[in-house]
Amino acid sequence: MTEPAWSIVVVEDDREIRRFVRSTLEDEGCKVAEADTGRQGLIEAATRKPDLVVLDLGLPDIDGLDFIRDLRTWSEAPVIVLSARSTEADKVVALDAGADDYLTKPFGVAELLARVRALLRRHGRGADGSAHFAFGDVSVDLSRRSVMRAGEPVRLTALEYRLLAQLIGNAGKVLTHRHLLREVWGPSFVESNHYIRIYVARLRQKLEGDPAQPRHILTETGVGYRFQP
């Protein structure tokens, strides 16, 4: 990250958590602005046009979900949600509202950095139009709809390919079941989570070294999937 410093807004009401998140990100060379309330956070986000927002879901003034929905009306900046809530349903709601990833408290520096880097990389690459994508021994050419593994072509069905393209296209981001069903199967399938599981298993069978312990197509139990290049 040697280019112009990334700008990040941290919205968190606990001073010490804010301090450690800030110092971690500044050590990475990011420019960090802090806000201890949701309203302040929205103002910071509007004036600084950050590359990423770190948002605590339990804010004192406004609901974290309202923050995300508000932000999404005018900003595409990725949002990482910090949640002390332990139920997965809350995370799913935040992700469906427009958040890109989540961290459950407590979390370590390494986890935070990994998530931030993944999202900044994806966001920074933006629409660079690269049609080639490689992970492990697999390479995907999106323009030609071809998938090769260790130099051998891999046969995917249309749905399998659409699912893979969704995952690759959102690398580093957590995709909820609802999102995947809507994008890959269409709106009439939103209650059929088991379809995703079957097709993810098939993709892993074809693309992962050990399908039982995948390294790229990762399960976020109770929430959805994350593709990690």
Partner: peptide, 26 residues
């Protein structure tokens, strides 16, 4: 339970995060 969870996790998050960032300090 969720209030308790929140109240206990918040200071723990700071302790873990701050200690963690100490180990990585430059």
């Amino acid at each position: 339970l969720s209030a308790l969870s929140h109240d206990v996790r918040t200071p723990l998050t700071s302790i873990i995060g701050l200690a963690d960032s100490l180990t990585l300090q430059k």
